[in-house]
Amino acid sequence: MSTDINAIELTVNGVPYPVAIDTSRNLSGVLRNEIGLTGTKEGCDDCECGACMVLLDGQPINSCSYLAVQAQGREITTVEGLADGDELHPLQRNILATGGVQCGFCTPGMLMSAQALLDRNPDPSLEDIKIGLSGNLCRCTGYARILAAVDATAVELRGTSDS
């Protein structure tokens, strides 16, 4: 058993959190337990479902299989950081409107992958969206409404940025 504890600071959704953790701890566990942000889910043991997806400096990672200590000094974004105060992010609004949320367990991870995709590619084809979300399994929806929601959001965001 390792007793090696690292006192580090993790910046999550713009807020710095000092935490003391063992080196072997995964980021999702630290986000959920030490930091208390349980929006990030855990659906598997090893990078296979995407429920734990968060952004690290804007890019998606599977936080279940990422060492928390390796995230120090980087900007971590979780689903709790998507909305602007009480104002839902367009992705959140659209995924609700299209019916892309059922049990909701995949939803936080889906939203994070979608956010990263739209940041990288504001004008994605449906195929681009499919590849962008291909690391996120959903058992409930059959994906059609999630696809539609991301597509609608891309259109909406392009509309606002053009004007």
Binding site: V79, E80, L96
Partner: peptide, 30 residues
């Protein structure tokens, strides 16, 4: 796309689920 033509139905538990504030069993601590 046809999906967006359907009347919208926003689930009562939806906002909880998209913001990450909704609690599932594993999210709870006593």
């Amino acid at each position: 796309m046809a999906i967006t033509d359907l009347p919208t139905f926003v689930r009562a538990d939806g906002p909880d689920k998209v913001t990450g504030s909704g609690r599932y069993t594993a999210d709870m601590t006593l």
